[in-house]
Design a protein around this nucleic acid. Structure first.
Length: 549
DNA sequence: TAGCCTTTGAAGTGT
DNA sequence: ACACTTCAAAGGCTA
């Protein structure tokens, strides 16, 4: 039960969420066992030193060196693997790679310009980034990672590096390539074991020839690049960003990418790449008649969804995204302030990278590219629309075995575990202002339930009195999404809903889901469940206030 | 096969 | 300034 106070940045729940272990069944176990993992840190680091010296670590020896197997061995192994790889890659002048899935190269150092200090050590922000991913671990200091062959400031430190590292693209620090390490089950099929380094047993960065198959350039995929934070998000083969007309518009056009890097970047980022040779990809900047579609950077919630989707799907066998997203939406609210902060930070980096990749891009560019939704009649998106739009109750997507007859209990886990109230008050993540310098939106919004069929039909009766009118009133205004969140993020009092669980009446499907699906199982959330019960009940009031305005 | 559903957040447009 | 709209992911579903 470590760190139940949840005050620290290394919130275990957050860690758990972020890491997304392969075996979901171990999730809860890991939460409670993270302390042991923490105890193993010293062992990890010390063993890494030896390992880096020997450079011939085998999984067997690693296991032997391990003090003792613990339930959290996976965390241990991952951490260990990560640092081993970090050391090795540093020495090789190559990539860091996913601590989760072998065979997928990626760079998780956040600094766009200089992930390394002059002494070859990770920069503070890079360390922060790593520590964010591995909150329980001490990111190796300069001494640990320092290596003569490591990228030097000359390679990376400047905003405009003069000389590119053999494998380093100026943006690679933020360009990550891992795809599916969040998959709750097994690594993607393409992450074949052959990628493992035969010597060390540690996954190595695949050669471009090995990578190319991982990044198929289907015609449809042309024009897009994978998610720069791919290590965080399962991409399922779908690239993310596209390259603007004229090719890869790099902020530092003077820089030349070597074949290795360009193949990586181009195969993943360029819409016009044609892998003529397994080892050398040539970028063909053929002019498209159309402007390639550059997608918006993912926001915090989208990043969270991508990370957690597989987990939720695995847990409940749901595949319908609408239902999954509903679960994820509630889980998102159940995240602690620190947990959400991580995603806000990632999203901020996403936007940062995106803005650097596509300086002239604007979200406006994508307006109208997608089929316009037929919500013109916004007005009727209210009560009447409830029934019309919700012809597919998510309950139908739920496996029967998930159905339980104790909605009340489920409600509690689902609704009563919102983010901490303080989070709503203080935007913690304090996400650095983006180029737009916007204040970090409060994720802990008291956004009312959208006109959900179950909510409107089921919860209303129970919700009764106070919330019923407010919910309906707010539904129209809130239907327009979260842009209004900040304005109504603070619930105003809780009139009358103190004892009754009206708002706890959620859509049936969720009430029937296992609580673990609805909110992280961490003790923190259980605590939050109780401490913030009143807050959630007050949500409708905030809406009333807003609508009143 | 295009679009819907569903979520939150970012960023756009409109008033 | 505020309200509203669109899009970002995702995959089953529907017309």
């Amino acid at each position: 039960m470590p760190q139940l106070n949840g005050g620290g940045g290394d919130d275990l729940g957050a860690n758990d969420e972020m890491i997304s272990f392969k075996d979901e069944g171990e999730q809860e176990e890991k939460i409670s066992e993270n302390v042991s993992a923490e105890r193993d840190l010293d062992d990890v680091k010390s063993s890494l030193v030896n390992e880096s010296e020997n450079n011939s670590s085998s999984s067997d020896s690693e296991v032997k060196r391990r003090p003792q197997p613990r339930p959290d061995t996976e965390s241990y192994e991952k951490a260990r693997e990560y640092f081993s790889e970090a050391l090795r890659r540093q020495q090789d002048g190559g990539f860091f790679k996913s601590p989760h899935y072998p065979g997928y190269p990626f760079l998780m150092i956040p600094d766009l310009a200089s992930p390394y200090l002059s002494n070859g050590a990770l920069s503070p922000s890079a360390r922060t980034y790593l520590q964010m991913k591995w909150p329980l671990l001490d990111v190796p200091s300069s001494a640990a990672l320092k290596d003569s062959r490591s990228p030097t400031p000359g390679h990376l430190s400047n905003k405009v590096p003069v000389v590119q590292h053999a494998h380093m693209h100026p943006l690679t620090p933020l360009i990550t390539y891992s795809n599916d390490h969040f998959s709750p089950t097994t690594p993607p099929a393409h992450l074949s074991p052959e990628i493992l380094d035969p010597k060390t047993g540690i996954p190595r960065t695949p050669h471009p020839s090995e990578l190319s198959p991982y990044y198929p350039l289907s015609p449809g995929a042309v024009g897009q690049i994978p998610h720069p934070l791919g290590w965080l998000v399962p991409q399922q083969g779908q690239p993310m960003y596209s390259i603007p007309p004229g090719g890869f518009r790099h902020p530092y056009p003077a820089l030349a990418m070597n074949a290795s890097m360009s193949s990586l970047v181009s195969s993943r980022f360029s819409p016009h790449v044609v892998p003529h040779h397994p080892h050398v990809h040539v970028i063909n900047y053929k002019e498209d008649e159309k402007k390639p579609h550059i997608k918006k950077p993912l926001n915090a919630f989208m990043l969270y969804m991508k990370e957690m989707r597989a987990k939720v799907v695995a847990e409940c066998t749901l595949k319908e995204s609408a239902a999954i997203n509903q679960i994820l939406g509630r889980r998102w609210h159940s995240l602690s302030r620190e947990e959400q902060a991580k995603y806000y930070e990632l999203a901020r980096k996403e936007r940062q990278l995106h803005s650097q990749l596509y300086p002239g891009w604007s979200a406006r560019d994508n307006y109208g590219k997608r089929k316009k939704r037929k919500r013109d009649n916004k007005a009727d998106s209210t009560a009447e629309d409830f029934s019309a739009r919700n012809k597919k109750p998510c309950v139908q997507y739920l496996p029967q075995e998930k159905m339980i007859d104790s909605p009340a209990s489920s409600h509690g886990s689902m609704l009563d575990s919102p983010a901490t109230p303080s989070a709503a008050l203080a935007s913690p993540a304090a996400p650095a202002p983006t180029h737009s310098e916007q204040a970090q939106p409060l994720s802990l919004t008291t956004k009312p339930e959208r006109h959900h069929p179950h909510f409107s039909l089921i919860s209303k009766p129970s919700a009764a009195s106070s919330s019923s009118s407010s919910s309906s009133t707010s539904s129209s205004s809130s239907a327009s999404s979260s842009s209004s969140h900040p304005s109504l993020s603070l619930p105003i009092g809780s009139s009358g809903s103190q004892s009754t669980p009206p708002l706890l009446s959620r859509p049936i499907p969720f009430t029937s889901l296992h609580p673990s699906l609805l909110s992280p199982p961490s003790p923190f959330h259980q605590a939050a469940l109780h401490s913030h019960h009143a807050l959630f009940q007050s949500q409708p009031l905030s809406l009333v206030t807003k609508s009143a305005d």
